[in-house]
Design a protein around this nucleic acid. Structure first.
Lengths: 131, 131, 131, 131
DNA sequence: GTGGTCTAGACCACG
DNA sequence: GTGGTCTAGACCACA
């Protein structure tokens, strides 16, 4: 598990998932959590690629996906910027959360856990406080 | 989204994931939910392959992964059977659930949701009805 | 790991190897260790198959291999008998041991263990007395 | 018995065992003996397949088993690499040796050889020179 | 009949 | 270029 810092951003990459997806997820999460301000510039493809020791192609892939989801805008010759629309970020966040929750519930129910079971399992986790 | 039935088993396959993984997941889920009895024979590689319209290789891949996880035993020349150890199935189920929950919580927290937030979102889903 | 007794013979069958090979090995070992007397009759194919809950084909396969190696003789209408030649049994035993030792040394040396290393590892095992 | 060289690696393949298993064993042995350095890249699936005149699938099968045992890591789009953990390799080696020794002793004792007998037979072999 | 190995070749995602 | 999945089919050992 490799961990790298660039500016205020921290990235943890491993081999279990496509690297571009990990960059995508971790960058999106940082935006959504407010760790990168609205309208702010994010590192250039080359810069980030170098910092993460990854080929520029990989970073580019992640950036393109972010742009497609409306989270970033590319300004010719200036670089890539987080959208300045708080609304859009919020929408992105809640839609993503919805998908994540859906997938989670579907998976758990496929394993035979009822909604009540799931609630219990989650409470146990919250009470335990480990992790 | 293709849906096929074989015996009491129902399979839904799509192109979003490797087919063998979908077979693996759906078969494991069926076992874990008790839809296939302990020690029971599951469809032969060829039989399931034909029913799902995939090559025997693909089904075999799934079956070998199931065996690796201890969920099935293969008896040469006879077929593939669910393990007769209830304990092993239970362990498989709870370990898998643990992983699913971990991944879920990690993902949600990366999006800036607190445990309390997550609980609220889930309750809203539960109140809203099944889906 | 299934364990079955028939007459003075004990068999342990599992799924890790071909069943006919396990029968072959365990029967041969019993002969070689003197647990079955020279010239003695061994169980009929059907009898053993029934006792081991295995198809007669499987037992037959094992018996044919034993006959091929000269350890048994089939007398028409009477059944299968251990050879009465002590010499032949002894030769079988030492040839087999030679092969087993060869394979063992070759495997260990492929893992980078010298003959001295191997001796040490074996002594440790003998001293420990566990197992 | 076919013998092929690729880089510093030598492979001997025959028909007595599954090819993928022979690749697995011989590659693992090479790693364990230090013939491939920790963290080093091993031949690509296609490269080795071509050198050994087998299909890429067969090599892949072997590589996936190696990864499962923790001996290698695969980096998407880059290739397959020996783990850089010396510890893991050592553990793999000693566990494997243990299994080999166990199986050997069990087999010999089934043939009626005592530990003392086995020691004698081995010493005779060692005195006699290398094979 | 069963699982398992293998071939020959295609196509994909990733870097 | 890399690993990985999949197809379509053959052939084998085993029960």
């Amino acid at each position: 598990m490799d961990e790298r810092q660039i500016g205020s951003l921290r990235f943890q990459l491993d081999l279990s998932q496509p690297i571009y997806e990990q960059i995508l997820q971790q960058m999106s999460s940082a935006v959504v959590r407010g760790e990168i301000a609205l309208g702010e510039k994010i590192p250039s493809v080359r810069e980030l690629a170098q910092a993460l020791k990854v080929t520029p192609n990989t970073v580019m892939h992640a950036y393109q996906e972010m742009e497609r989801s409306g989270l970033t805008e590319t300004r010719r010759g200036q670089g890539t910027f987080i959208t300045s629309s708080r609304e859009r970020v919020e929408q992105f966040r809640s839609e993503l959360a919805d998908e994540v929750i859906d997938a989670f519930l579907q998976r758990m129910m496929a394993l035979g856990y009822s909604l009540a079971d799931i609630r219990k399992l989650l409470e146990r986790r919250q009470g335990g406080g480990s992790r």
